[in-house]
Each structure stands twice: as C-alpha cells, then as structure tokens.
C-alpha cells in the first residue's frame, strides 16, 4: 500500500474505531462488569453472580422478562400479518403515482415522535376517549368503557409504532420481484394460494426477516408504549431497568437486567438469522 493510501485509511478508520470502541464496545463490556459486582459495604464491591441470582430467584423479575419476550414476539407476528398484505398491495397492486403516494402515507406517522403516536392512542382508548364515547353513542355500551391500561392496549401501541419498520423492508423486497415471475406462476397453472406460498413468500423472506428483527428489537426495548398504555399489572422489562437505575439507584442489578435484555434480543436475532440462513450484513446493510 502506498503511503498516501495508508494515511487515508488511518484517517478514515479513526472516527469509526473511536465511535465503536468508546460508545458501543467498551460501555457494554463495562456494563457487564458492573453487573457482576456485588456491594458488600460502602464503596466496597466483589465479583459475584449475585445480581443474576437475584433475577433468577425473584418471580416478578423472571415473569416480567418472559412476559416481555413473549409479548414482543406476539407484537412482531401481528405486525407482520397486518403489514404483509398492505406491503404487497403497495408493491404489486398499486401502480405509478398511487404506489409512491401510498408508500409515503405509510411513512408519515413515523416522522413524528413515538410519544405523539402513543398520546393519540391514549386519547382514543381511554375511558373518556373517542372510542368509548362512540360505543355509548351507538348504544353498544351503556357506560364509559376503559380500554387503556391493559395488555391489548400495549399490543395496539406496539404494533402501530413498529408498522413502518415492517412495511419498508417488505415493500422493498416485494418490489424487486418482477411481475413476469408472478405471471409465470399463474401461466403454469398456479392459483393465488400456491403462487403466494411458492413464489411470493420465498422471495420476500429477506424482507420478512429484517422486518421481524427490527420490530422485535424495538418492541422488546420499548419503554414508552408499555408505560403509557399498560396498566399496573402489565409491567415491561425496560421499566424494571429504568426503576433500578433511576429510582432505586441499584446500578449493579440494573446493569444485569440490561445485559439480560441484550442477551435475549441478540439470541432471538441470531436465531432468526440462523433459521433462515441469512447474515446480519445482508439483512441490515
């Protein structure tokens, strides 16, 4: 390598390495180290798995962890089921200007903060909200209905918030499937169902995988939606992390929780990639 090129390489490498090491790699290692500390006195610590043992022995923590994971998976699945027909419509049924307009419409809600979106659902779902009033007006309910502060409300919020991250990769992969290939499927005797199963869905797999990964991760790590839309009983794991850090000042346990959340999301992402034979580079990059 010529000297000039070497200098260029070093110059370009520096910001990347600083960013990744100082903001990503070292902080996470550090977080892991902190999670292995046990406070034995004022300012005195020793290395022990105590925080992880606390997690394993406290039913509330375990239950919340499992609940969060399962609900995040469910939210991912529902988002996929809702988004797929819409994405297919945008990519393969709509034409020209309609297609761009519909796609843009899908993006609009995500240019505003998640907080605003959640706030919208609160106005709709709460006891004095729009839907409750509508139901009473229509005679379907004889008193105000509280639809907020339960798991269903969380689910609605999560699905809504994640929709974009499913629609975009799905539309992108579906658009890359030539009409000709679909027509060939029918020409050779295929039906709606068989063309969908054998041609469209296999083709869309990369989009499905990357959409699911992102949606799952966002749902799992969501704090706002469960806090605002969920009730007293619907605790989310991120809320535990927040309370350990900010309310209880128990950083050691909070760090352990954070690490567990990271572990869970990495495992599921890795599993999904393994299952479908994709790599992170191809799916995300």
């Amino acid at each position: 390598m010529k000297a000039e090129a070497r200098i260029g390489l070093i110059l370009l490498l520096t910001p990347l390495l600083l960013w990744l090491s100082l903001l990503i790699v070292i902080p996470h290692i550090d977080m892991f180290l902190v999670s292995l500390r046990e406070r034995v006195g004022v300012g005195e610590y020793r290395i022990s798995p105590a925080n992880y043992l606390t997690f394993l022995t406290e039913p509330l923590y375990l239950r919340t962890f499992a609940r969060t994971a399962i609900m995040a998976m469910l939210a991912t699945l529902i988002t996929l089921l809702i988004a797929f027909p819409v994405s297919y419509y945008i990519a393969k049924m709509a034409r020209g200007r309609t297609r761009s307009a519909l796609f843009l419409l899908c993006l609009v809600p995500f240019w505003v903060s998640e907080l605003v979106r959640t706030f919208g659902w609160m106005i709709l779902l709460r006891e004095t909200g729009l839907i409750s009033t509508l139901l009473q007006w229509a005679g379907l309910a004889d008193q105000p209905v509280e639809m907020l502060y339960n798991d269903a409300a969380i689910m609605v919020g999560l699905v809504y918030t994640s929709m974009l991250f499913m629609v975009v990769p799905l539309v992108t992969t579906l658009e890359s499937l030539p009409d000709e290939v679909i027509e060939a499927g029918y020409d050779l005797g295929g039906t709606n169902v068989s063309v969908m199963r054998e041609i469209v869905i296999p083709h869309a797999t990369p989009g499905i995988v990357s959409g699911c990964i992102v949606v799952f991760m966002l749902s799992l790590g969501n704090y706002l939606t469960p806090t605002m839309l969920g009730g007293k009983d619907s605790l989310w794991f991120t809320e535990l992390i927040y309370s350990q850090f900010i309310v209880r000042f128990n950083w050691e346990l909070g760090a352990a929780f954070g690490f567990l959340l990271l572990l869970l999301s990495s495992l599921i992402v890795w599993g999904m990639l393994r299952l479908t034979g994709h790599t992170l580079e191809r799916t995300m990059g």
């Binding site: 550090d30 790590g221 850090f245 959340l261």
Partner: peptide, 26 residues
C-alpha cells in the same frame, strides 16, 4: 468491523443508554 458497525441497530435503545451511562459515570 462492518458487522460491528451494524450492531447498534440491534441493540435496544435503553441498553445503549445505560451502558453509556454506566461507563461515563465510572
């Protein structure tokens, strides 16, 4: 390095936050 560059996309935002908080405070 490219994979590392992509990682922040699959780390929950709250975990990114606390790891940086822990590290900088230390």
């Amino acid at each position: 390095l490219y994979v590392f560059m992509l990682l922040p996309l699959v780390i929950p935002g709250i975990v990114l936050g606390i790891s940086i908080l822990v590290f900088s405070s230390r």
